[in-house]
């Protein structure tokens, strides 16, 4: 009953008995499902449930499939679901290259191979040669792109975006958005986007679910 992509099957999340989200939806590889709603409506809660880091104060039921595998009971680290938040959240104690190295799967073996992959990933987001930089010295747009490169480097099977463009200024936002979506399409990743910005939803081009209204 499942195939490639992200499948949210009858997921219901409640807080103290009050239901805040209830959804069944399939996201095909390369497509974007946008969840919209006012702040506090529980958009991010859904994202957290899919990612596997829902706060224990919430109660939830329903199943989540990623690339045909049910991940509902899996720990977050075993789900292969990448996340991007509104802040780039680069690890401040690692260089740009270190951040990517950290993300790269263990399966990529050999120092040379890993260095090569990191260089390639940075090139892919237009930041070739910045491996040695301290993330703190990057501009806002650069940081976002490193964050994107980092999540892609971990070869996820799905991507969760939690208002990832909301802190960027208008011009940068459009650019970054375009980059993220094109990369996701390129890698054939199903994307779950949470936002309250209609322009984001429009650019995503996929289905739109509104909650909390």
């Amino acid at each position: 009953m499942t195939d490639a992509g992200l499948f949210i099957d009858g997921v219901t999340i409640a807080l103290e008995g009050r239901e805040i989200v209830s959804l069944t939806k399939r996201v095909a590889p390369g497509e974007v499902l946008t969840v919209m709603g006012p702040s506090g409506a529980g958009k991010s809660t859904l994202l957290a449930y899919v990612g596997g880091f829902l706060d224990p104060v919430f109660s939830a039921r329903g199943r989540v499939f990623v690339a045909g595998t049910e991940v509902t009971a899996l720990k977050p680290e075993d789900r292969h679901v990448g996340v991007l938040f509104q802040d780039p959240l680069l690890f401040p104690h690692m260089s740009v290259g270190g951040n990517l190295m950290f993300a790269l799967p263990e399966a990529v073996r050999g120092r040379a191979a890993r260095v090569e992959r990191v260089a390639h990933a940075l090139e892919g987001v237009g930041l070739a040669g910045l491996e040695a930089r301290d993330p703190a010295t990057l501009s806002g747009g650069q940081k976002s792109r490193v964050a994107l490169a980092r999540v892609l480097a971990s070869t996820p099977r799905a991507l969760l975006l939690d208002e990832p463009f909301s802190k960027l200024d208008a011009e940068l936002r459009a650019q970054t958005r375009e980059l993220v979506f094109s990369k996701a399409r390129e890698s054939g990743l199903p994307v779950l986007l949470v936002t309250h910005d209609a322009a984001d939803a429009e650019a995503a081009g996929g289905d739109i679910v509104r909650i909390g209204e």
Partner: peptide, 24 residues
């Protein structure tokens, strides 16, 4: 969210603790 990002990158709790939380 640093923790969640690292988990999204496929890192288990021990790795997250020693490589992210502790140094930070």
């Amino acid at each position: 969210r640093y923790d969640q990002i690292a988990a999204g990158l496929g890192k288990g709790p021990v790795e997250r603790f020693f490589q992210i939380r502790l140094p930070m």
